[in-house]
C-alpha cells in the first residue's frame, strides 16, 4: 500500500500532533514544555526524512560511492536541535522560577493566583512574596 511507503511521514504527523496538542491543552507547565519538545522533534524527523535518498551512502567522500544522501537537512537540523535545546532550557528555567514565586506550576491555579494578588494588593511590589532567599 502506498501510504505504508510513507510511514515515516505518518510517524512525524502523529508525533507532531501529539506535541501540539500537549502544548496547547495541558495545564501543567512541564507537560506543555514536553509537548513543545515533541513538536520540535517531529520536525527534526521530517527534515531527516527529506534528506533520505534510497540506496545512498552517508555523505562522506568515499571511494566507490556514487549516491550520497542529502547532507543539508542534517546540517540544518543540527542547528534546529541547538535552538530546541536552548528553548527547552529557558522554558525549564522559567518553570523553576514560576514555581519559586507562585508555589505552583498548574496553569489554571496560576491564573487564579495572579488575579488574587492583583485584587488583594494591587499596588504592591511582588518581590516581597518571594519565598526563597
Amino acid at each position: 500500500m502506498s501510504w505504508l511507503a510513507h510511514f515515516n511521514y505518518w510517524a512525524v504527523i502523529v508525533v507532531m500532533m501529539t506535541g501540539l496538542y500537549m502544548a496547547i491543552a495541558q495545564s501543567d507547565l512541564m507537560r506543555k514544555l514536553i509537548g513543545i519538545t515533541l513538536l520540535q522533534t517531529a520536525v527534526f524527523f521530517l527534515y531527516i526524512s527529506f534528506g533520505f535518498v534510497r540506496n545512498a551512502q552517508v555523505p562522506i567522500l568515499t571511494e566507490g560511492a556514487e549516491r550520497y544522501s542529502n547532507p543539508l537537512p542534517h546540517v540544518l537540523i543540527l542547528t534546529a536541535i541547538v535552538v530546541g535545546v536552548a528553548t527547552t532550557a529557558l522554558g525549564l528555567a522559567l518553570v523553576v522560577r514560576i514555581r519559586e514565586r507562585y508555589g505552583s506550576i498548574d496553569e489554571a491555579e496560576l491564573a487564579s493566583l495572579a488575579d488574587e494578588v492583583e485584587d488583594l494588593e494591587p499596588h504592591h511590589d511582588f518581590d516581597d512574596q518571594d519565598e526563597h532567599p
Binding site: L29, L94, V95, R101, A114
Partner: peptide, 11 residues
Amino acid sequence: GRDRRALLAAY
C-alpha cells in the same frame, strides 16, 4: 520584569 506575572507572560 519585577512583577511575578512577568514570568508567566514570558512562559
